[in-house]
Amino acid sequence: MTLRDTINRLLGLQRASATTARERLQLVLAHDRSDLNPELLEQMRREILEVVSRYVEIDLDEVDVSLETEDRVTALVANLPIRRAKAVAQPGVKAKISLGVNASGPPKVNTPGRPGPEVANSALEDTDGATAAEAEKPAAQDIQPEPAAEKARLEGSESLS
């Protein structure tokens, strides 16, 4: 590490390259492990939005569908802020859908013979907007306090061979 690097690091102008390396790796591995290319991910995103839009009005500018990975388990995390439900108006609520794909190895016992990812308990849960990120939006009165985005862990085997 040169003196210039040291100074930059101390001044907060430059972060440690190991941190950058770790983050880049985690992102690329999430994609590698799920065997999803960006095109498929985009297609899936559109279809998820299509389904969810039938029930609730989504804030399309704030939609975020991405892959996250931890402990060799990759999860597809979709963050879909809801403007209002179509049946009963509930402004400013947010839905979180999470479904996971186990990236390592064969399907486990609790889901025998499942060929691939499948939405088991895809949870569409309204949250109260109490977390920091959502604080700006007005919260609906009658909604339960804890977001509890349900995670449906799917043991779909990654087709690697």
Partner: peptide, 20 residues
């Protein structure tokens, strides 16, 4: 401890898992 080596290792580990 390099990104390329770790990425490739990850791929291999996935294959080793599928081979039991």
């Amino acid at each position: 401890p390099e990104v390329s080596a770790v990425r490739d290792a990850d791929r291999v580990i996935g294959l080793l898992n599928t081979h039991g």
